[in-house]
Design a protein around this nucleic acid. Sequence first.
DNA 1: AACTCTGTTGTAAACGTTTACAGTCGATTC
DNA 2: GAATCGACTGTAAACGTTTACAACAGAGTT
Lengths: 327, 327
Amino acid sequence: MPVTIRDVAREAKVSVATVSRALSAPHQVNEATRRRVLAVAAEFGYRPSPAARSLITGKTGNIGLIVPDLGNPFFTGVLKNVQSRARQSGYGVFVGDSDEDPAVEEELVASMAKQVDGVLLCSPGIKDGQITALAAKTPLVLLNRKVRGISAALMDSAGGMRQSIEHLAALGHRRCAFLSGPRNSWSNRSRTTALRGAAARTGMEIVTLGPFPPRYSGGTQAADLALAEQVTAIIAYNDIMALGALARLRERDIDVPGELSLTSFDDLVFAAVSAPPLTTVAMPVDAAGRIAVELLLARLADPSAPVVHQELPTQLIVRQTTAPPAR
Amino acid sequence: MPVTIRDVAREAKVSVATVSRALSAPHQVNEATRRRVLAVAAEFGYRPSPAARSLITGKTGNIGLIVPDLGNPFFTGVLKNVQSRARQSGYGVFVGDSDEDPAVEEELVASMAKQVDGVLLCSPGIKDGQITALAAKTPLVLLNRKVRGISAALMDSAGGMRQSIEHLAALGHRRCAFLSGPRNSWSNRSRTTALRGAAARTGMEIVTLGPFPPRYSGGTQAADLALAEQVTAIIAYNDIMALGALARLRERDIDVPGELSLTSFDDLVFAAVSAPPLTTVAMPVDAAGRIAVELLLARLADPSAPVVHQELPTQLIVRQTTAPPAR
DNA sequence: AACTCTGTTGTAAACGTTTACAGTCGATTC
DNA sequence: GAATCGACTGTAAACGTTTACAACAGAGTT
């Protein structure tokens, strides 16, 4: 029932080789023949079988994207841009949600490997060594994680953290809590070290809590702990957690930012319209998604292309969850 | 370099047929041989080539999901559940963003068709006829759209709309605006007709505005128009638009719900934490995603399986954007 | 006139699986 | 003791492409 290259060849009175060439190496075939072939192909609605093609060429025309949580708009923001940039170059996108589980993550890469030309790993939770091992088998580009020898699109979390601390310090805060995210995520480590540096420099006392699941529920859970620590400000790992924390604080009748300041990371669409609007570090999600695809495509086109770690700037957006401390 | 079935066969001292059977029809091969083959396969890290397999079986082990906007958490909510349910049955997920463009939508289905066993079309913008045509070529299941002859997971938008109108009517509103979404989307039509019915029944006067792009910007744009219409309540097509409208209303110093009530659809995570928290119709996104996959899998397993339109209930969640009208 | 070159086409071998079919072998049945 | 059976295995043909190689014609070169 499905129309094959043979059907087209028969109808156009040429060999299958000519049909194949008319489609994928147009200059190798006579102008007139080519037009005839294309006409027949269009008439029949012929589409080459990707399986057969990929079997022989070794290329699939697809890329894979693996993220820890499709429920988090931060990652779907990346996805949106990845898919759009990929499509622009004729690539399809496979998506996998690892649910923050390193084992699942590895399994996803492995099961995708043969169906894609390369994989984008977003904020991977697995170890550097495993990443390097995977990269040896499949072209890999990382998002939000730096591993030597592997190209990556990075968002400057550290810079964002410094801006946050300086902002809080300038407001007069002296003791604040950091609601940490996944313990071994690169983002979290990167933020933590930046935090320590900036805290030392500004004389800020830091209480690190967690790790918490970087989700709404993680935020609600964390809020109570932070409150017990007698801090005047909270830095949440991301906006979603901040939202959870905000909800919990409201339940407990704590005024934000009157009694407690709150900052976070991501600047998702709703950060501007929460109650009150979040002071948060804007992450260049769109650019990161696009650039990651471009790095991968470059590597596919030329496997010996240089490894690049492209770092994208972040910026603290001051809204209404931060204010000078109570007394 | 990549290890093939032949490598495994050689090492295990059996034919390729036996290796193949050991993996995909275990009961057809002797216990001892099977264990030996599996051991070798594991040792070599052998993974069958999906391309070769699919070429001969005609199955890919993948499904496709096409949505109008990956930037909208409503659709990524569907995606999350689709991917998780699919993976549970060993299927991979291809994702496409049509950007609300019917032409892109069709092209996506066509380009996916050969790489997937079936496609999930979420809130498609194309015409019934075209959908039926596509369904003839590829197993198709619809999300949020009813077309005869094609299975679908539906969310009861109409019921949600009735609940919203009744709620507003009970509060005393007599004239409200509907900020409509994509003109020819099934959801929008379904909501519009339910709206008319419920309005007639409750004696509510309705001003239908739009269509607006169902995005944040659509909401900000719509807010001013609604305001000019002198209504006491606004029903937005979805939460994202409601958020946009809310932001614009705040800019113009309109008190919600004091001067103007606002309801919408979706109940995304942030609906509970916006300022003020949104009164909105909760959509069963999770269930819809899962069920859509199940309908598709059922159809794949048995192409003669009955067509089912599974309708899932919605529920109005009353929060703080609705109140009795001003005077 | 023989050769080489270029442009166009066809033939056939791959790619890595699955599976119909045939075969082997030991055990069971008559 | 032959026939039948069942469990297991192997051989080889497919699946739909791409592409190396060969073939051929006509044009240009010597």
